[in-house]
Design a binder for these strands. Structure first.
Lengths: 213, 213
DNA sequence: CCCGTTCTGGAGTTAGCGCTCCAATTTACC
DNA sequence: GGTAAATTGGAGCGCTAACTCCAGAACGGG
């Protein structure tokens, strides 16, 4: 489906990367539909034929943007929480997410979330890719939580699958609300409360009538 | 900003409403940018001049769609939780949200969330309207939680402002993930865990080392 | 240094978009 | 029943979008 150039010169790869970078930026701020090929040409200083030399059509470009954003976001996650396997790491992860958002003055949301929201109902292939991207992200969280459980930082009743999903949903919802309100508070509260919920599964807090739902 | 026709015949209002309805449906599934005026004309069986008689331009139409969706969503909320002031009501609210999503086979997300994601960075006026829409939604939740607290169903340490924000973020994030995965599980887990967190502020559960963050 | 491949430039082409215009018809109100 | 306003129809305009084509320039392995 995507253009698969057998070989690719260093110069060619550079041009291709530059195109993907510019396309990412534009598509994430203006949306995919509002971003024209001409915009990308101008911003990346390439001509039409160059662009269509590397990408069969706009769909292929979107595909490349999704790939790029997936590796970027997951890479950032790994960076932020080299191993997300302690409450301290969770807290750092939260702080970093909030810091990034504040640094952007609360413009823009999660790259994957933004793309998913726009493409879920119009581009089945994109929806599928983004679903697996979310799956990989979720796995990062799940593995960390599982490690915490085996290590005894979480009670056996804690369900890493569900907690990971809850954390991911909190990030997404928090980012969307913060982006809309131009205020980092929603993101902070969403992350704080979901982490606080995880904390209820710490042995020291595990008490009376807790339920995992 | 919006076309404000001094008077409006019953027939005219019907036509206008039909246009807004069709526009809503199309814009929410295909996105605003992908929805053409021609699409709306065809689907609503109106001519170009009719459409531009009621709406100055596409922006005005978007404005009307936001208004419509806001009243619809908030109306549905009120319906679902005539008064959201008990854990039973919270549970019903959760069940109804999940039921709606399953009924749609997990296609489409939250109307307000979808619009916000697409328009936040390209249409400042729309972003502002959607921010206040979210604010009103949040207030519904906050008032219910506050009522629960004064009634003693929640401990005084519970912060209705923060809990409401957390619940709203959970719905938004859960819906986005469920829409992307075509699976209601993320929504269920997001709502269950955030409600479970609220439940940790019930007097019977309030124990050892809880923190509000 | 040579030749095939890779890479680049820019003027088209075609289609569809948002929107306008002018006029006919229906409706509301007295 | 008359009249002014509200409502409708549809052709058409200007612009811009995605994409194509035909070359020419640069590169890289032998």
């Amino acid at each position: 489906m995507a253009t698969e150039p057998a070989r690719l010169t260093a110069k060619g790869r550079a041009t291709r990367d530059r195109i993907v970078g510019v396309a990412s930026e534009l598509m994430l701020t203006q949306g995919v539909a509002r971003t024209t090929i001409e915009d990308i040409q101008r911003e990346a200083s390439v001509s039409a034929s160059q662009l269509y030399h590397y990408f069969a059509d706009k769909h292929a470009l979107v595909h490349a943007v999704i790939e790029r954003q997936t590796t970027d976001v997951l890479g950032f996650q790994r960076l932020a929480l080299d191993r997300l396997d302690s409450f301290a790491a969770l807290q750092e992860w939260r702080d970093m997410a909030v810091a990034v958002m504040e640094q952007r003055n609360c413009t823009g949301g999660c790259p994957l979330g933004t793309l998913a929201s726009e493409l879920a109902e119009t581009d089945p292939a994109a929806r599928d890719e983004l679903a697996t991207s979310f799956g990989r992200w979720e796995k990062l969280l799940r593995d960390g939580l599982a490690a915490m459980r085996t290590r005894g930082e979480l009670v056996p009743e804690a369900d890493p699958d569900r907690l990971a999903l809850a954390l991911l949903a909190a990030v997404q919802g928090g980012l969307l609300l913060s982006q809309t309100r131009r205020d980092s508070l929603p993101l902070e509260v969403a992350l704080d409360t979901s982490i606080a919920y995880v904390r209820t599964f710490a042995p020291s807090n595990w008490g009376s009538g807790q339920r995992v739902g």
